[in-house]
Design a protein around this nucleic acid. Structure first.
Lengths: 323, 323
DNA sequence: AGCACCTTGTGAATCGTTTCAGCGAGGAGG
DNA sequence: CCTCCTCGCTGAAACGATTCACAAGGTGCT
C-alpha cells in the first residue's frame, strides 16, 4: 500500500491515509531496511569538514542522493586514518548502500573489506589504485603545471611550492606538475623552493609565509604556488600583515578555487576544480554501481582550469642575470 | 555474547570471536535498532554548513556523541524551512535518538511532532520558546551591546548594523543590544544605520559594504557591527578593495569569532561565542534527555566575549559637533 | 545417593516492515 | 446456472539481533 498505492482501491487508500495522519504514523526506516535488505543511506567521508572545498563537494553528493530519496551521512576524518577507519566501521554496521570517500594518505583496508561485502566505494579527488573501482579525480599534474606556467610566463624565476612533496597523492601530483613546468621553463630545478607546512589550513599557510619571508632576500621566491586555497589564504594574510605587497612583491596562486578565494582581500588566482560536479559525479557513479545492473566502472578525470585574479596580476621584469 | 561477553565461557568466546573475524561478520545496526527499540544515531541540523561556525559546533556535537558510541547524521538546512522540514522527516523515519537543531526563522511544526513522539530536540543558538525543552543559547543582546559599546568608547558616533533587524531571532537580539547601547551612549537612535544584506555570507557582506560606501560622506558610518563573521569578512574585503582603510576609515566588528576572523587580512575584532562548547553542551543535554531518567530541562545561556583585534583598533577623535 | 543450585548454552519470541501466497467476491462468458 | 478470471484484501513468513526462559551438565552439600 505504502509502496504501490495504485494496487489498492481508492476508498481503502483514503481510509489508510487518513488513519496514518490521525495516528501520526511514520515508517520505521530500520525495519524497512531490514526487510528490504538494502538501506536508503549513503556515507560520505571527507578529509576536512572545515575546508569549504569539501562542503561544496558534500552539496553535490547530497543533491544527487536526495533526488533519489536517499540520505547522506557526512563524516569527517580530519585526515587521520584512525578516524576514517572508525567512520567506515560505523558505515558498515549501518549497511549503507555505498560510500563516497576522500581517502587519507594510505588507502585503509576497510575500503577493500567494504567492497568485498558488495558495498561500492567511490574515491573522490584521488586516482583509483586499479581498474575495478570507480574514482572521480582531477588532473592535478596539469593543475600544478597551469599554476607554475602562469607564474613563469609572468617572469617569475624563483617560485615556492607550499604544500610539501609528500603526503596526499593529489598534493604529490600538483607538486610533480609544478616541478615539470619549472624544469621545462627554466632548464633546472633551482628556481623551486619547497615548503611543507604542518597542516593544509590557513594557519599552515601563515606559518609557511613566515618561513618564506625569513629567507635571505636573494633567495626569497617572488611567487608561491599553494597546494590548496586555505594555505594560499594563510600565505596572503601573513604577507599582508608583514607589509609584503601582493602581487607586487610576491605573487600567490592557490588551488581548488573555493568561494573565499575570489573574495580574499587580494582576490586569489587559483586552480579551479569543479567542486560540486565532483560530488555529483561521484554520487552518480556510486548509485549506478549500487543498482548493480551491468555497472561499468568509470574513473573520470576532470580538467582543472586556471582562474587568474589580482594575486598574480603583476608582470615581473625579466631577471637581469638571465637576459 | 556480543553485548555481555563475560556471561560466556572463555573457550566459547574465543571460538565465537575467531568465527566472527573469519567470516567477516559485522553487526547489522538496523536489526539491532529494531530489536533494541532505540537507535544509536542522533541528528544535527545546521543553518549553513559552509559557515565555519557550524562546522565547529558540529565538531563539539560529534565529540560527545562519539564518546558514547553514537553516530551523528549531519544535515544542512541552508536556512530554508522546507529543507529543514525534509531533514526532520528523514530523521524521524530513522528514529534517531534525538536531534540538535539550529532552527530557521520559525520553529517548524515537525519539532513539536518529534517531541510528542518522545524524541528530544535541543535547540542550538536559539532561546527555547518555553520551559519544557532544552536549548543552548548565547546572550546575543549582550553580544550586540559589547560590540557597540566598544565602538562608542573609541569615539565612533555613526555606526552601521549589518544584518538587518528581522529574520533570525538571534540576529534580532544582536540588533537590540546594539540599539540599546547606541541609545544609552548617544542619547538617540540617529547614530545607527541598519543594512540588510540578502544572505548572511561573505557575498552579502561585500554587497552591504558597497551600500555603506555609497552613502554620502557626511552620513557614512565610521564603524560597522556585523551580525556574523562571514558578513564582516565580506565587508572588510570590499572595503580594502575599494581603498577604504580598515580600521582608520571604517572600523569593523564581527560576530562568532570563527577561526578565519583572526586570520583575516586585517584581523577582525569579533564577539566570541564558545563554538565547540555550544555543540558539546547541546549534545550532552540531548543525551541526558534521551536517557530519560529524571531529566531536568536546562537552557544554558553562554556569555559572549569581545575579542579586540586590529579591525577596530583606532581611536576616533571626539566628533566636533558633540564636544 | 539424592537434591538443590549454579554455570553455560540453546531455542523461541520479538521488533516493524515488506512480500507473496492465497482467499473471497463479483463479473464475464459459455 | 456454472466455471473461470480478475480485483482487492488478508495473513503469514522473513529480515538479523536481542532477550529471556529453559535445558543440560556439573558441583557441592546433606
Amino acid at each position: 500500500m505504502l509502496n504501490r498505492p495504485d494496487t489498492v482501491s481508492p476508498g481503502t487508500r483514503e481510509r489508510v491515509l487518513s488513519a496514518i495522519s490521525a495516528l501520526g504514523f511514520v515508517r520505521n526506516e530500520s525495519a524497512r531496511h531490514l526487510r528490504a535488505g538494502r538501506s536508503r543511506t549513503i556515507g560520505l567521508v571527507v578529509l576536512d569538514i572545515a575546508n569549504p572545498f569539501f562542503t561544496d563537494v558534500a552539496r553535490g553528493v547530497e543533491e544527487v542522493a536526495n533526488a533519489q530519496g536517499l540520505s547522506v551521512i557526512l563524516c569527517n576524518s580530519d585526515g587521520r586514518p584512525e578516524k576514517e577507519a572508525a567512520h567506515l566501521d560505523v558505515l558498515t554496521e549501518q549497511r549503507v548502500r555505498g560510500v563516497v570517500l576522500t581517502p587519507t594518505a594510505e588507502l585503509s583496508p576497510q575500503i577493500e573489506t567494504l567492497r568485498q561485502r558488495g558495498v561500492p566505494v567511490v574515491l573522490l579527488d584521488r586516482r583509483a589504485p586499479g581498474p575495478d573501482q570507480c574514482a572521480v579525480a582531477v588532473d592535478d599534474v596539469l593543475g600544478g603545471r597551469l599554476a607554475a606556467d602562469h607564474l613563469l610566463e609572468r617572469g617569475h624565476r624563483r617560485i615556492a611550492f607550499i604544500g610539501g612533496p609528500g603526503g596526499l597523492p593529489q598534493l604529490q601530483e600538483r607538486y610533480r606538475g609544478v616541478v615539470a613546468a619549472v624544469r621545462e621553463g627554466t632548464g633546472s630545478d633551482d628556481a623551486l623552493t619547497v615548503i611543507t607546512p604542518d597542516t593544509l589550513t590557513v594557519a599552515g599557510g601563515r606559518e609557511a609565509a613566515s618561513h618564506v619571508l625569513g629567507l635571505p632576500a636573494g633567495l626569497r621566491p617572488t611567487a608561491a604556488v599553494c597546494a590548496n586555497d586555505l594555505l594560499a589564504m594563510g600565505v596572503l594574510q601573513e604577507m599582508v600583515r608583514q607589509g609584503v605587497r601582493v602581487p607586487d612583491d610576491v605573487a600567490i596562486v592557490g588551488y581548488d578555487d573555493i568561494d573565499y578565494a575570489a573574495a580574499a582581500a587580494v582576490p586569489l588566482t587559483s586552480v579551479r576544480k569543479p567542486r560540486q560536479e565532483l560530488g555529483r559525479r561521484a554520487a552518480e557513479l556510486l548509485l549506478d554501481e549500487a543498482a548493480a545492473e551491468g555497472h561499468q566502472h568509470d574513473q573520470p578525470v576532470f580538467e582543472p582550469m586556471l582562474v587568474v585574479r589580482e594575486s598574480s596580476m603583476v608582470r615581473r621584469p625579466r631577471p637581469t642575470v638571465a637576459s
